[in-house]
Design a protein around this nucleic acid. Structure first.
Length: 784
DNA sequence: TCTGTACAATTTTTT
DNA sequence: ATTGTACAGA
């Protein structure tokens, strides 16, 4: 087979693919076909005779990893592709750590603590040390520890690092290092590693066990790394350790898209690469295939303001296209209104599907207003990165039981479920157990094994309860040896009492919890089946846990098929592209974030972030800012972002500058704006009219008008309390009634149970599917 | 020991 | 506005 795919590549791309004589850095501008180069490079290496299991391809996200695997499978077939070492840093190195866990004193089925496990552990340590959690803010402590780990600083090194100690002393937190030491020890006793440990411990493994390092050095004949600008020191060092000796490495990245420094990513890893690899050959991919010229030029004009970067000339040969549009709104409400209007409009004029639209924002909190606006317009949408499936309470509870079954030393899991469902083991008892455990360096489970022998004083009733819990978990461990994994999962959910607890009362919440648990069990089953198909005979619950603890991507396959507008943070959008992009909230204190104004370095990162956002767009890019916005319960006003002034006006449509100076009255917007609904949308300045001359086809429909009435009940509004309106509406409800819910939008009543205020209705919502509502609580109105 | 209520703090981004 | 925590009362 000839390498006919080479015809799919431009000259720069082809050079990058074919060069295999030494270390290589590919600077890949936004939309320049980076994934294509990586894919074909791997295909090329395979063709040269490298066996697939000797190629290591590292990415940053699961999404990127999957995409790469799929694209490679298309070129070389799934058989070969599945033998590659391709995945995220975290997944690949957790695999390697599991294989060598004994070298570090861990078991191969160690638990992976997610961010909330680690935060909760830090909280309890702070509490046990009787420190003030206002001085030692758990989240701050967590990020300090995380940064230390990413810089490969272990506690004993931390203690000797004058700079760090001085910093902690200055911020009146001299005991951080001690917390770190205890935290690390407690993770170890619990048989757990947190996210950062996966990288830190890999480095320790390689450092302390040269034979292991040598093994993987020999194994990986060629190393490819995507998004190198996002690597932190721990990742960078792993790559050098594995790749430096044979020098067959290819890293791809774009310094202009480095946006993860808050997580320890160091842009100098890529900027300083040529010093590290003397023969480093640099290729630049400068042709952008994604966006129109106006979009590319706008983005270039912005990023040009950054000082630290590798020089490159990104260009587009697509049509010039529309100018990038900047729109000013009075409030975040109006901003949502404008965006949803434009989506409706553009969908007609450009024949785009909803899938072609994305709304990008700086912070997750901004999604709310946008959701409301979209719902009013009946525009379907999907939010990326909300609370994912595995973050839901009932799922975390079930998983905590799974985790305990595999690893009873798992402290966080144990704390979570020792008294859920309620079994009379309260805080007092738990505290005794924990104190005892830590005094003797044991896990809580060890103490639980023999409370008396470990000196825990409890009355006999409590002792029985503890015994009962212990036996429960042990019965699961026994079941694990006799049942299939899917059966085991079901046993646990039932025997633990989770199922009983959430089926006790048939509230709408509980029904959705049950569905989630069902979905989890299906997930286990599906996972086992899938593994069986790929030749893995015995899939254990431990395998399942290992898989999901690193899965954060929530793009459910069938979800993605539906035609919906995408809402997500700019960070989450990296690597994606959309025909129509809206970037909202381009204001001072938001974008750039108020947290990032201290140094030029931080501002440069915010600038790169906006660069990433703009370069997601293929055809149209619209930036909006609101002069006032609801934040933490109150209205604040901020000027437009400084970045807007940095965009080259030749490629951008700006609203009249005078507008921005408009004095702001006190808030009445929120109330009065709703009243404007259904009439003409706000008209701000002439710039708006030239492009959207036609009378808007979508003035707000009548139902929406009514919806705004119940929603615009501000504290000051003394007209009707929401309860009243719901009760009034309730009386008239029949099957088939159309209702409008404050959160779920419009829907049709499909069933009614019970009477009066205690009755429950089932509603098929147009956008969010079936929900059950209790009349007593639900906020909705009858429409039509 | 559990439950309910009141009050406080919180918010940048996430593998 | 929501969420978590602290404290009081059962």
């Amino acid at each position: 087979m000839e390498e006919d795919f080479l015809n799919d590549l431009n000259e720069q791309q082809r050079d990058a693919v074919l060069y295999t004589e030494g270390p290589e850095l590919v600077i890949a501008g936004a939309g320049s076909g980076k994934t294509r180069v990586l894919t074909y490079k791997i295909a090329h290496l395979l063709q040269m005779g490298y066996p697939p299991y000797r190629l290591l391809a590292l990415t940053f996200t699961n999404k990127a990893a999957n995409e790469m695997k799929n694209r490679i499978a298309e070129v070389v077939g799934i058989e070969t592709a599945s033998r590659l070492w391709a995945g995220t840093f975290h997944s690949i190195f957790s695999r390697i750590l599991r294989a060598n866990a004994d070298r570090l004193g861990y078991r191969h089925d160690f638990t992976i603590y997610d961010a909330s496990d680690s935060l909760s552990l830090i909280k309890s340590i702070i509490k046990e040390m009787q420190l003030d959690d206002k001085v030692y803010k758990p989240s701050t402590v967590q990020s300090i520890i995380s940064n230390a780990k990413n810089a490969l600083i272990e506690p004993h090194v931390y203690a000797k690092n004058r700079e760090l100690i001085e910093m902690d002393t200055r911020s009146k937190r001299p005991l951080i290092c001690e917390i770190y030491r205890i935290y690390r020890h407690r993770c170890f006793v619990s048989g757990a590693m947190d996210f950062d440990d996966l990288l830190l411990n890999t480095n320790i493994l390689f450092r302390d066990h040269p034979d292991v390092l040598q093994h993987y050095r020999d194994l990986f004949a060629y190393i490819l790394v995507d998004e190198y600008q996002d690597t932190n020191f721990a990742q960078h060092l792993i790559v050098s350790q594995l790749g430096k000796e044979h020098n067959r490495i290819c890293v791809v990245g774009d310094d202009a898209q480095s946006i993860y420094s808050f997580r320890g990513a160091n842009i100098h890893n890529i900027l300083g690469l040529s010093k590290e690899y003397p023969g480093l050959k640099i290729f630049k991919l400068e042709r952008n295939y994604r966006s129109t010229q106006n979009i590319v030029n706008t983005a270039n004009s912005l990023i040009a303001k950054n000082k630290e970067q590798i020089p490159k000339q990104i260009f587009s040969q697509k049509e010039q296209g529309n100018k990038v549009k900047v729109i000013s709104a009075y409030s975040d409400f109006e901003e949502g209104f404008i965006v949803s209007n434009r989506i409706a409009e553009l969908r007609l004029t450009t024949h785009c599907r909803y899938n072609d639209f994305a709304i990008l924002y700086r912070t997750n909190a901004q999604s709310r207003t946008l959701e409301e606006a979209l719902r009013k317009r009946n525009i379907p949408y999907r939010i990326y990165g909300g609370t994912s499936f595995y973050q839901r309470k009932e799922i975390k509870d079930a998983i905590a039981y799974f985790r305990l079954t595999i690893n009873p030393n798992d402290e966080e899991a144990l704390k979570r479920v020792i008294n859920y469902p309620t079994r009379g083991i309260g805080n007092t008892t738990l505290t005794k157990l924990i104190d005892r455990a830590h005094e003797s360096g044991l896990s809580i489970w060890n103490v639980l094994d023999d409370p008396k022998g470990n000196g825990v004083e409890v009355n006999s009733g409590t002792l029985n309860k503890l015994q009962g819990f212990k036996e429960l978990i042990e019965s699961f461990r026994l079941a694990a040896t006799r049942q299939t994994t899917a059966e085991l999962a079901e046993t646990i959910v039932r025997q633990s009492g989770i199922m009983r607890d959430i089926t006790a009362e048939r509230t709408p919440e509980n029904i959705s919890r049950q569905e989630n648990i069902e979905e989890l069990l299906n997930g286990v089953q599906e996972f086992c089946t899938l593994r069986q198909e790929s030749g893995e005979e015995n899939t254990t619950l431990s395998d399942f846990l290992a898989e999901i603890s690193l899965a954060t991507d929530q793009d459910n396959g069938d979800e993605a098929e539906q035609d919906k507008v995408t809402l997500m943070t700019v960070h989450a959008s990296k690597g994606l592209e959309f025909k129509q992009v809206f970037i909202v909230g381009v204001e001072e204190n938001l974008f750039p974030s108020s947290m990032s104004q201290e140094s030029e370095r931080e501002i440069e990162e915010e600038r790169r972030l906006l660069y990433v956002a703009i370069t997601r767009a293929e055809e149209n890019c619209t930036l909006t800012y609101a002069l006032t916005r609801y934040r933490n319960g109150q209205t604040v006003s901020s000027p437009p972002s400084r970045f807007l002034k940095e965009l080259d006006p030749r490629y951008v449509d700006m609203p009249a500058q005078a507008r921005q100076e408009q004095p702001l009255e006190e808030r009445p917007w929120r109330n009065s704006f709703a009243g404007e609904w259904g009439r003409k949308p706000f008209r701000r300045d002439d710039s708006d009219d030239s492009r959207t001359p036609a009378p808007r086809p979508f003035t707000a429909p009548a139902p929406a008008k009514r919806l705004t009435r119940i929603e615009s009940r501000p504290a000051s509004d003394n007209s009707s309390a929401p309860q009243t309106s719901a009760t009034t509406a309730a009386g008239a409800i029949v099957v088939g009634s159309r209702i409008c819910h404050a959160r779920f939008g419009n829907g049709t009543v499909s069933a009614i149970e019970g009477t009066g205020d205690n009755s429950k209705i089932t509603v098929e919502f147009d956008n969010v599917g079936r929900k059950q509502l209790l009349l007593k609580f639900a906020k909705f109105t009858l429409i039509e």
